[in-house]
Simulated assay, not measured.
Amino acid sequence: MGLIEIEDISRTYKDGQVSVKAIKQISIEIADGDFVSIMGPSGSGKSTLMNIIGCLDKPSSGSYKLAGQQVHKLNDSQLATIRNEFMGFVFQQFHLISKLNALENVELPLIYQGVIGKERKKRALEALESVGLGERAKHMPSQLSGGEQQRVAIARAIVSNPKLILADEPTGALDSKSSKNIMSIFQKLNRERKITIVQVTHERDIGEYGNHIYNIKDGEIDCIEEIKHTETENNQ
């Protein structure tokens, strides 16, 4: 059984009097501990698929099971609980709060979960240290580079020990060196912590950091590729 089991899901939006199918009867299964890249041109449906996987949107038809639970049948409050306790999110634009330092930004998910102050700070600092930013914990976002801000965002995503990380164009605002650093962190989290990672990207070289690439075209899965990584890559 996969961690993510999607069967025949479609998502239709209304544009005035016209119905637009963003995705059409997609069926995929993503194993626990996999690292998947969803790739496709603009308008292909990849973001819609990501939003459904992340419980930010519901399919118009079809079924979606997450860890065996039929999430497509849950209400908005139940979906919010799953997002908060089961998932971590990383976005292209970081979404850090400018008035909070790095440590305080990473603490935010734990505040929502009711984790007390001392334990909260301990876990947030450990998360920052795991992405190489322990010494930058008191720095404000404006004092950090783009790559460092994204690493803070990753620390925030993992501080709750999620089973699943969803990353939407995580390197889209970064230079090539910072992009490689971010993807190396994702690979390490996937390999060492067994966190399942699903990322959306339009960059082929970024997509190939994953174990599988799901190519989506015109709202449908065009093909699925398996990426073979060398032993040297795995040990980096």
Results as ranks from 00 to 15, higher is better:
residue 2 G to Y: 01
residue 2 G to H: 07
residue 3 L to N: 09
residue 5 E to I: 11
residue 6 I to R: 11
residue 6 I to E: 09
residue 7 E to Q: 14
residue 9 I to S: 07
residue 9 I to A: 07
residue 11 R to Q: 15
residue 15 D to M: 15
residue 17 Q to T: 15
residue 20 V to F: 14
residue 22 A to S: 15
residue 26 I to T: 06
residue 27 S to P: 04
residue 27 S to E: 08
residue 36 V to K: 03
residue 36 V to H: 10
residue 40 G to C: 04
residue 43 G to D: 08
residue 45 G to L: 05
residue 46 K to S: 07
residue 46 K to V: 04
residue 47 S to H: 07
residue 47 S to Y: 04
residue 47 S to K: 09
residue 50 M to P: 05
residue 54 G to C: 06
residue 54 G to V: 02
residue 57 D to I: 05
residue 58 K to I: 15
residue 61 S to W: 00
residue 61 S to I: 01
residue 62 G to A: 09
residue 62 G to V: 04
residue 65 K to D: 00
residue 68 G to T: 04
residue 71 V to C: 06
residue 73 K to E: 15
residue 74 L to W: 06
residue 76 D to R: 06
residue 78 Q to R: 13
residue 87 M to D: 08
residue 89 F to K: 07
residue 92 Q to C: 05
residue 95 H to V: 00
residue 95 H to K: 08
residue 99 K to E: 14
residue 99 K to A: 14
residue 100 L to H: 11
residue 102 A to R: 06
residue 103 L to R: 12
residue 103 L to H: 05
residue 107 E to F: 04
residue 109 P to F: 11
residue 110 L to N: 04
residue 111 I to H: 05
residue 114 G to V: 12
residue 116 I to Q: 13
residue 117 G to E: 13
residue 119 E to Q: 15
residue 121 K to G: 01
residue 122 K to F: 03
residue 126 E to H: 07
residue 127 A to P: 07
residue 129 E to D: 15
residue 131 V to G: 08
residue 131 V to P: 08
residue 132 G to Q: 08
residue 134 G to W: 01
residue 143 Q to A: 14
residue 145 S to H: 03
residue 146 G to C: 03
residue 146 G to Q: 04
residue 147 G to A: 06
residue 147 G to Y: 11
residue 148 E to M: 06
residue 149 Q to V: 00
residue 152 V to H: 01
residue 155 A to T: 10
residue 155 A to W: 11
residue 155 A to D: 14
residue 155 A to V: 09
residue 156 R to L: 06
residue 157 A to H: 10
residue 158 I to P: 05
residue 158 I to H: 03
residue 160 S to Y: 00
residue 161 N to F: 00
residue 161 N to H: 12
residue 165 I to N: 02
residue 167 A to G: 11
residue 170 P to R: 00
residue 171 T to P: 08
residue 172 G to Q: 04
residue 172 G to H: 05
residue 175 D to V: 09
residue 175 D to W: 07
residue 178 S to Q: 01
residue 184 S to H: 14
residue 187 Q to E: 10
residue 192 E to T: 05
residue 194 K to L: 02
residue 199 Q to K: 06
residue 200 V to M: 01
residue 201 T to H: 03
residue 204 R to V: 05
residue 204 R to D: 09
residue 206 I to H: 05
residue 208 E to P: 00
residue 215 N to H: 12
residue 226 E to A: 11
residue 229 H to L: 02
residue 233 E to M: 13
residue 235 N to E: 14
